[in-house]
Structures are given as C-alpha cells and as structure tokens.
Design a protein around this nucleic acid. Structure first.
Lengths: 361, 361
DNA sequence: CGATCCGGTGAGAGCGCTCTCTCAAACCCT
DNA sequence: AGGGTTTGAGAGAGCGCTCTCACCGGATCG
C-alpha cells in the first residue's frame, strides 16, 4: 500500500476494484480472501487495481455475511482497581499474544451494572464471537448462562461448582505441595497460611491443598482468611501474629497479599526468613519487589492465558468441539523470603513445567 | 427479556418481528431505535413481539448501514511488560468508565509488527471509529498518519513536536514547581533529579520544568537520566550517588523509578527523608507501597483518561469538531519520603485540581 | 369546502460483501 | 474424435438493517 492512511475521501468498494481490473466482484473477493483457484495473471491485475484504488474491505459487510465479528471479549469482574492488579497485566499480555496471529480484536469488558445483558446482546447480535471470563464473581451466573446458550466461552480457573466449560487452571495441589515441602525441608514446624477468598475456587483449593500436603508431611496448619488483595494480606498478618505469635513459616495464597503482609512482620520484629519464612503464590512482579524478595509458586500466567485464548478460538471455529480442561504445572521459585535449606535433600525446589490435557465433558 | 441467553436456535430478524406485530420492518426499526413518532399502541405491540420472539438486532447489519462500528481502540506501545505498569491500569479504568455510558467497545491494541497497518485497516474498514494513543513511541508516525487521514484520534500527553491533535496532559510545569517548592521549603539545597526518557515529552517537560522552578528559587540542579522503568530508577540512583554523593534531595520523574531507587538509597546508608528527601511523580500505587511511602506529584490519571475518551467520542460524533487540548492541574501528595517541613510556610503542598480548556488547532 | 399540513406508516432501495450455482473453456482418456 | 472431467470466472441472490420517500387520513386554515 503506497499510502495506507490516505484520507478516506471516496469510498472504494469491491465493485470499483472489479471495474478497474476488468473482472467480476466475485474474483476480486477471491483474491482478497486468498482463494487459490485464481489465475496468476488475473490475480496480479486485481492486486494492481487494489493498490491503485486504495481498496480496503468493509469489515461490517463481511461480518454481516460471514457471521463472524472477529472479536472476543475479555470479561473482568467489576471493582475499582481490578486493573491495578499486576495479574491482569500478565493475562492481557498472554491473550494479546495469542490473538496477534489472528485479526481478532480483543474487547475489554468490566461487568458493571447491566454488563451481563450487554455481553449477551453483543454475542447474540454477532458483535462478539466469544468470551474469556476471568475471575468473575464465583456465583456469577454468566458462565452458566453463556455455556447454556452454547456461546463460545472459556474460563480462567476451575468453575466454582462442576460444570462442563472449557477452562485452564494451575495445578493448585502441586503448587501447594511444593510450598509445603519447601517449608518443611527448611525445618519449619509452626506453619500458618493466609488464604485467599475462600468463596473462590483458587482460595479454596490453595487452602485445602496446602493443608493436605502438610498433613501428609505430618504437620498441622493454622489459617487466617484473606481476600487476595494487598490490604487483606496486611490485616490478615496482623490477626495471624496476634493469634499465633509463635509461627515460623507462612504460606500466603497470593504475592499481592504477601506484599502487604511482609511489612507487618518487619514491624512486629520478625526477621524474614530467619524468624518466619514466607512463601507466596503467583510469581507476580510484586514477588520480585518484596523486601526480601519472595519465594513463591510460579503460575505461568501468560502461557495459561494464551492457551485459554486458543481454546476459545477453537470453540469459535468449531462449535461442536468438545470442552477441555488444561492444567498447568506450577514451579517453585526460591528467593530470599524462604531460601534453600541447608539440608539439601530438597528435590522439591523445582518442578517441571508442562501441561496435562484432559478431555472433559 | 424473559430469557436473555436462550439458545440462538432460529435467527430472529426485524422481518419476523414485523410479521408477528403486524407492522412493517421500518416501524420495528423505529421502535428499536427509540424514534419518538410511533403510536403508543403500535409501539407496545412491537415491544411485545420483540419479547416473544426474543429478537436481538444484528449489529453488523446495523454497522453496515450506519457506518459506525461503535468501537474505539486503545493503542499501547509494544513491549513486554507495558501492561504490568500500574499506570495502564489507571488509564484503562478511566477509559472504561467514560465508555460505560455508551455501548462503545474498547478494543485493546498493542503495536506489534504490522500493528500500525492493522489499525489503519480497521479504521478504514469501519471496524473502529477512532483511536486513543497512549505512550506510543515518541517518533512513531502513527499519530501524524492518523490525524492526516482525518481519523478521529486523540493522544495522551502532548505530541513530541507541535501538531494539531486533541490531547490531554498534566501541567508538568506546575507539578515540577510543586515538587521544587516543597523540597526547598524543607531546606534542601543540594537537589538532584532522576529524569524520565528525555526523548519523551513527559521526560523532557519534567526536567526543564523542575530545573526552571528550582532556578527561580535560586537553586541549581544535577540530573541523571532514567527511562521511566523501575530498573532504570535503580541504576540511575546508583550513578547519582556515585557522581554526587552529597545530595540531600531527589526529584524522580516517576513513582515506578522511585520505587526502584529507594532501596539503593537505603543500601548506601542514606536515610529517607533524614539524609535525602525524595519526591516522585504520578501518585501511582507504587508510591503508596514504597518504603517509606512516597511524597509525589499526583496526576489525576483516571480523570484524564476519561476526558480523553470523551474528546474522542466528540470527534467521532462531529468530524468537524475543533481539536482541543485539556490540561489537568496536578497536586502534591505529601507522605514520609519528604514530609511536611517544620517551617510551615509551605502553601505549596496542595494545589487545586481542575482543568483548563484551550481551544486549539 | 377545497387546499394545506402533518403525524404516522409502509415500500423499497440500498449498505458492501460472500458464496453458491452456472457455464465456458481447456484438458484428458480411451 | 467424442465424451467426461477439471479449472476458472461471472451472475446473482442474499446477509439484516436503516433511511428516504411516498402515501394516507385527519386536523387546520383560508
């Protein structure tokens, strides 16, 4: 294109290109859409006509007949600083990466008042081909509603209650076992956890996973409930120290909460990791910028988001495609907040990345 | 709608609603689009028909004839962790807020390879009504290209070289004067700055603004160049302390850089604020979570993003609308890194929020 | 009382594209 | 050489909507 951004003075349509090239509309359409069965000479003539006219296909017209919007929504929960959470930046990066190979638009949606209806309208109205649901409220009817209507929709994390929906998740149990094994290997015995919101799958899974991993190692657990936010980490740590001043290790269900919790430990005169070892979850940027830097269970968020996006595209391209669950294996990233133990029997410090594909209902 | 998400089995069109209601397509269209001149009885009949049929307008068909996509792009620079910067979360929040009143989609775009061409194609192809450019590279031709083609486009921050384009910016001069005044009021004399990228408008304006504010207070300035990233703040502070070990105050051109710089000060044995007072810029979440919390120049990012969005919508609705510049006044948020001075002559600690509308170009 | 106006409705022409179906021409095989 | 197959292009019918324009009946006015 010699001047891609020329003023859109006169509108150029297929019709006109066809006239200039001396062929039919259908042939121009074939060239534009890369259909193979077009004679080389004619193809070149059409391409010349396209460049001289500065033709640009009208996407609305195309959508109308193909019934494809070439757009998917990334649906986020409502709430003020949802977008401030570094986690979403990683999700966005992964999704955009997977989409960049296609010409599919990413539409960002926060579920405000009337947001659900709007998404359904856009889906039904052909303005959206599918939706990626991330951390929508656990008892939000949206996921169920959309799958019931057989719209292409995928979910971040397992659904709160079992339902047939394609989703990706990190193997929470493995992650928790990694954390538990590491802390026990460090010789810690009075182990606590600050949980996420227990009405979310991740919050629940990380508590039960950590508890059972610890139990299998012969340790008990005290827990305090947080809410995945930085501030909730701070207040939970306050409560934890008040109720159980003798702890020597804490597993915190998200790095963001850990970021809020660490200063509390310091202010209470607990050295990290000498007095209290701390392990987080996510390996978000917050982990790196904690003081001390955080040992944490790494979720491959970008990879997971990219895979989730590919799954959505698969459902869009084949409405009959079976629903899948893709589980990613987490790894333990060891930093100063819970460094390697002297007893180097720890083969638990790094697990293999990888994924396990389970076909589901 | 009794069951908004019913399976889209049979496709319902205007035609069918018209048949059920016993009126013409045109009348149904009028009802759907809220045209006033429709008889009450007929309107009700049509509305009944709409609910019984479960009609949902096809947006592609509508777009085709109205030539409106009802979608705008938020264009971000390429780069891995652009989305990790808390700044973008605030921008997103502001933009989504302004858009939520309309049915306009927000399409998120990162300028990767071929990204520019894609945006132009989407704009010309009627898939996008306009674009919001945020921190696209300073010598990116996109802004110029799009304005030249008369596409609705708005810019975050002033353009690198003067050009007629609607944009919002914070009053960098005022912000710098606030910071300079505060530090001088604290009795600091050996004042330094860590700049942003000097090839960006914000980087340049904050350096010159701070220098001239300081000059007018009879102080000199030493500067080290950073790049607005956390890491660049860290290394710049290293260089600064190596070259000018006697400084007693630093103005850092972004909170993110300050977040990287503060630990360096600590490691070099400089107490903040006792030995070195620090003032940042942005009032991002990083400022709050610095240790000590950061005194900083607050940009009303969400408000600015919302205004920028409204400006874009204005241009979309009226292609002949004049181009505007909206300047927001920053305020100084005083926290521990540069607390209030004992000499409480400081009337500089808080400035009025507000905005100044200059018609331009 | 006829001309005028006006609110309210319907008919119909597109918007720009894709895609099936048709058909002509070229090619192959016995 | 003739019939069948393949290749490639064109004609034309929509996709579902908006919007202009014509029309019609009733109210208004000279």
């Amino acid at each position: 294109m010699p001047d891609a951004a020329r003023p859109p003075t006169r509108r150029v349509t297929l019709e006109e290109v066809a006239r200039v090239a001396g062929v039919s509309r259908a042939t121009v359409s074939r060239v534009v859409n890369g259909v193979a069965s077009v004679d080389q000479n004619i193809r070149q003539a059409v391409e010349r006509a396209i460049t001289t006219t500065g033709y640009q296909p009208n996407l609305a017209a195309r959508s109308l007949v193909t019934r494809r919007a070439n757009a998917v929504a990334l649906v986020l929960p409502d709430g003020d600083d949802v977008l401030g959470d570094p986690f979403f930046g990683r999700v966005l990066t992964g999704v955009l990466g997977a989409l960049s190979a296609t010409s599919t638009h990413l539409v960002l949606v926060k579920i405000g008042p009337g947001g659900r209806e709007r998404i359904v309208a856009d889906l039904r109205g052909g303005r959206l081909d599918g939706a990626i649901l991330v951390h929508t409220n656990h008892n939000d009817p949206l996921a169920r509603q959309l799958t019931a209507a057989r719209f292409p929709v995928v979910l971040w994390g397992r659904p709160p209650r079992p339902m047939p929906i394609t989703h990706v998740d990190v193997n929470q149990a493995t992650g928790c076992a990694l954390a538990a094994g590491h802390l026990v290997a460090l010789g810690r015995n009075r182990i606590a956890t600050i949980t996420g919101r227990l009405d979310t799958p991740a919050g629940e899974d990380r508590l039960t996973g950590f508890r059972s991993a610890l139990a299998s190692l012969g340790r008990e657990l005290v827990s305090v409930e947080g809410a995945f936010t930085r501030e909730s980490g701070r207040s939970a740590m306050h409560r934890l120290l008040a109720e159980h001043p003798d702890i020597d290790a804490v597993f915190i269900a998200s790095d963001l909460m850990a970021h809020g919790a660490l200063p509390v430990l310091r202010r209470h005169g607990r050295a990290v990791p000498a007095d209290v070892a701390v392990v987080g979850f996510d390996d978000s940027s917050a982990a790196v910028h904690c003081d001390p830097p955080l040992t944490t269970v790494r979720q491959p968020v970008e990879d997971m988001a990219a895979e989730l996006t590919r799954q959505l595209l698969r459902h869009i391209n084949d409405p009959a495609a079976p629903r899948n669950t893709v589980i990613f294996e987490p790894t333990l990233v060891v930093r100063q907040s819970a460094p390697h133990g002297e007893t180097s029997t720890s083969s638990v410090d790094v697990a293999n990345g990888g994924l396990l594909d389970q076909s589901g209902g």
